[in-house]
């Protein structure tokens, strides 16, 4: 079975990091919790309207403590038996590339070429790899720049999602694939900006003009409206330029990067060796 799979190039999607059911479960729970951690201004209004005081002031604390721990559990679960030396080496090298790209791009334009590598990598090497690569890229760049802060777990999770979903895109090939990746890159760029802004929105705007700030206890529709106003007023320009930058970069170089990654994945032969089946047959 494995030998036939190895012999034919039919396996188009090598899985660099196997996602087993326990890791899937951990990933799902962490992602659900992450959604809550990002979206609590809309989700946690509850019935007590005006003075959800203790709840909403403490909520960010709880999320800031629990989310990184959950991410560590997910990482440990993914690593447990699913990560071999090749996956680690590839992860390290690609994370270094991504981190270097990120440090290059900290300027006013907002164009961040991090996704430029993450999208093809998630696409070629699978969703588990994409998720871990997204997280480690952000972590590595934070270590490089000395910018470790409470925002890091949130950024890591958001980038992890970008890589994860890049590994879940439908199987297209050729130009259609590059176009799909570019479109996804644009969407992901916008969504990433909106999500990560959402994390600091309640703090950044507390006490500012109520039409753009988080109002304790208001209904989720009102909060959404306020957040949309805030987003348009502050960051839509940056995020649009990031989205367009992603798409253009992927259109320009996506094919070459995909090819290079596929070749590396083929040489690493991720799907083959763990079972030792051929060795037994020979012996």
């Amino acid at each position: 079975m494995t030998t036939t799979a190895l012999a034919t190039p039919a396996v188009r999607r090598p899985v660099a990091i196997a996602v087993r059911w326990r890791s899937t479960f951990a990933l799902t729970v962490a992602s659900l919790f992450g959604l809550l951690a990002f979206g609590w201004p809309f989700l946690l209004h509850g019935t007590s309207a005006n003075v959800d005081a203790a709840h909403t002031t403490d909520a960010p604390w709880i999320f800031a403590i629990v989310l990184p721990l959950l991410l560590l559990v997910v990482l440990a679960e993914l690593a447990d038996g699913g990560m071999d030396a090749k996956a680690i080496a590839l992860l390290g090298v690609l994370a270094a590339c991504g981190a270097a790209l990120r440090t290059v791009s900290i300027d006013a334009t907002g164009v961040s070429p991090v996704f430029f590598l993450l999208l093809p990598a998630g696409r070629v090497l699978g969703r588990g790899f994409g998720f871990v690569l997204g997280m480690l890229t952000l972590f590595g760049s934070a270590l490089l720049t000395g910018g470790v802060g409470p925002w890091l777990p949130f950024q890591m999770l958001a980038t992890g999602w970008v890589g994860l979903f890049a590994g879940c895109l439908p199987p297209l090939r050729g130009r259609a694939e590059v176009a799909m990746l570019a479109a996804y890159g644009a969407v992901a760029g916008l969504a990433y900006g909106a999500l990560t802004n959402l994390w600091f929105w309640p703090f950044e705007t507390s006490g500012l003009s109520p039409q753009i700030s988080y109002v304790r206890g208001a209904s989720w529709l009102v909060e959404l409206h306020h957040y949309a106003s805030f987003y348009v007023a502050t960051s839509v320009g940056w995020d649009l330029s990031r989205a367009i930058g992603n798409a253009v970069l992927v259109l320009l170089a996506g094919r070459t990067v995909l090819l290079a990654l596929r070749r590396a994945a083929r040489r690493a032969a991720f799907n083959s060796p763990v079972t030792f089946v051929p060795a037994k047959r020979v012996g």
Binding site: L91, G92, A96, V132, L136
Partner: peptide, 29 residues
Amino acid sequence: PRRLLRAVPGALYEAGVAVTVAMSFAPQL
């Protein structure tokens, strides 16, 4: 924070190694 990296528990050993690889590889890039 790189020094904190040395204190990662055994379960995160693989991820820690990947980050260490990234750290040492970035300057070479």
